[in-house]
Design a protein around this nucleic acid. Sequence first.
DNA 1: TACCAGGTCCTCG
DNA 2: CGAGGACATGGT
Length: 227
Amino acid sequence: MNLLSRYMKLLRHYGPQGWWPTPYYRPGVYSRRFSERERFEICVGAILTQNTAWKNVEKAIKCLKAAKLLNARAIAVSPLAKLQSCIRSSGYYKQKAKKLKIFSKWLIEKYGGNFARFCRRSTLVCRQKLLSLWGIGPETADSMLLFAGHKPIFVIDAYTRRFLAEYGVRLGTYDEYQKYFMDKLPKSVSMYKEYHALIVAWGKDHKTRDVSEEASHKGTHGLVRAK
DNA sequence: TACCAGGTCCTCG
DNA sequence: CGAGGACATGGT
């Protein structure tokens, strides 16, 4: 079974997910262009959801919205304490406040606060620039590029690794996992989005941990998956 | 009560 | 490099 047929299987089983999960989003509809406000919200969400349940991120985003902090300029000039208290529910709130500040200030200084303008250059160049920022690693960068920038880049996360491990595929670095998917799939932005969303749906459905994680969490006991 | 959640950075060998 | 620890809140 190849990656494309696994995708079809997931799609049949779970149905179109509709990601990025903003209120603006319509499941299964990937063609609509986002407004700059929406793009920025996705970027913020990508940072806030680092190792954190999306539920906790939603609260934080609602607070930011209510406080009119959901744009680069507002975050850049906001008192740190105010920003921190607003995103407290998303965990690591001190680090994440700093990350939001750094990202926002950078976006303003280099691209007039406009993510779409930043996205004008090539995917790889954009990726390198995002990765150079403190607080933005490969998954966050790729989430921003794919979901906010509509760029053809496949997002790898913990669920994705588990998903492949389920089929006996275990690789090393983030980039190796990414290459594995991108070498085997057609270059389709909408499919990359949906595939990632479906893998997350699958992951939440299979709340057990796989052997590949056992190796990197020596202190814990991996559970045997119940089929 | 512990463990987990759509990671990333820093330090040390 | 790569492993190991820190970062933090909310749900089960």
